[in-house]
Structures are given as C-alpha cells and as structure tokens.
Amino acid sequence: MSITTSAATTSPALSVSLDGVGRSFDGSRKVLRDIDLEIAAGEIVALLGPSGCGKSTLLRQVSGLDAPTAGTVRIDGAEVTGIDQRAAVAFQEPRLLPWRSIRRNVEVGLARHTDRAEGAARVEQLLELVQLSHASQLRPRQVSGGMAQRASLARALARNPGVLLLDEPFGALDALTRLTMQDLLLDIHAVEPATILFVTHDVEEALYLADRVVLLGVESGYKADSGAVIRSVITVPGKRPRDRGNAALAHLRAELLDGLGVSTHHPAHTL
C-alpha cells in the first residue's frame, strides 16, 4: 500500500523523556515509580508488562491526560503540562462517538484549523490506509470490534502527531488482520516518522515492530502496591522489516516471556 504525504502535513517526530516518573492513587497506592526512559525522535518503543501493572497509566502521563505524582515528562525537551497536542492517543478501547459515522469520527482527530479540503483528503487517505473506506458511512455500533479499533488508530494518525501513543492498538484484531496492520504501521512510520510508544501483550508483536522493548513490572520481592518499575529494556537487533521467523530473536522472546512470568519450555530454562 502506498502512502502519499504533502510537506504541509509532515511534522517531525519528537523525542520523549521520562525522568523519575511515578504515579500513585489515593495518596498511597503506587502504580508506577522511578520510571526513567529516553526515547529518541522517530523511535518505536514497545511497552510490555503483566495486566494491571500500569502500562496505560504510563501512556496517560506522556499524553498529559494524567499528571505524574513524581518526576517529569518532556516532549521535545519541553515539559508536558496538561493535555499535549503534540501527542495523539489511540485508547485501549476504541472510544468512538456512537452518533458519528466512522469517517466523522476520524475527522475528530484532525488538528484544529486544518483546511477543510486538506482535512477531508487526509481522512479519506487514512480510511483507505486502515481499510475502512467501504465502512466510512457506518456508525460504530455497525462495525466489528477490530474495525472500530482501526478507526481509532486512524483518528490518532489524523493530526500527524510528533508522538503517537498506542494502547494495545491491535488487541481486538484477528491474527491475520493483526499482521497486516503491523506492516501498515511500519509503512506509515516510514513515510511519517512519528515517535511511537505502544503497549502490547504480544511478545512477537513487540519484537517485530519495536526498536526497543521496555518490560514493566513490580520488582521481585516487592509488594504489588510498591509500584511497577522498568524491569528491563531490550534493544531489538536488526533493521525493519524483520523476518517474523527470525531465529536470532528466539532468545529475546524467551527472555521477555520469562520476564512476564510465562514458562517458555526453552532449553535454557529447563535445565
């Protein structure tokens, strides 16, 4: 699939930096603590971790939808205070407006003051990209969960953000569409190189898409409400697009699954 883009819609990717970021709820219950992470402009970073460990919460700190109780988040060197329009989010749930058609939902993502014709063209192009042109007139309740999720992805892409925050963007897709959409995301990234921070539960997906994989979780020996930290950061070798069956990644896969507490029955671990 080819993507065209005009100079006017191309905004540069922006770096993201987290410095001692922590978030606790109700004063005491820590969800995140001491998160230090530098993401270079244009980099793709996967966030991996057990359910409920604070992945969505971490994304919310970067988007400015939520404020950390400790530390600072910076985009392109400038501190994030409040909802930041340099970033765009695709939520874990599609969160489409039920009374708007798919097309009009994608329009919501356009930057303010976008030229009408330019905006319409952009939306058209995105709908094609996420393979929803045929469904553009339907309401969210009339489309499948996977289609709704793709619409939500298109909405996030609409403003050509410097930072793209994706919370399990392909979670509701069937295995086949999922692979197509992964390639699509890489295509988009090649043409419009945003910095991408995405959450996934899928180790394969993380290794296929990301430059680095960040494993989030509570340190062993600590109580659950002591807050999740970065357990490890893995740099994925090789250039994209990667071979999905790459054996060289097998040990990384085992390492990550191990970090997630999944037994891999890998020779190295069955000794």
Binding site: L65, I83, L97, V108, A111, R112, R155
Partner: peptide, 12 residues
C-alpha cells in the same frame, strides 16, 4: 467520561 476524555485528548 471515556468519550469526554477522548474529546479532550484531541484538543476539544
């Protein structure tokens, strides 16, 4: 609240 938040996230 989820829809409100989505609206806010996109600058509304």
């Amino acid at each position: 609240p989820q829809l409100l938040e989505a609206g806010r996230a996109f600058g509304y």
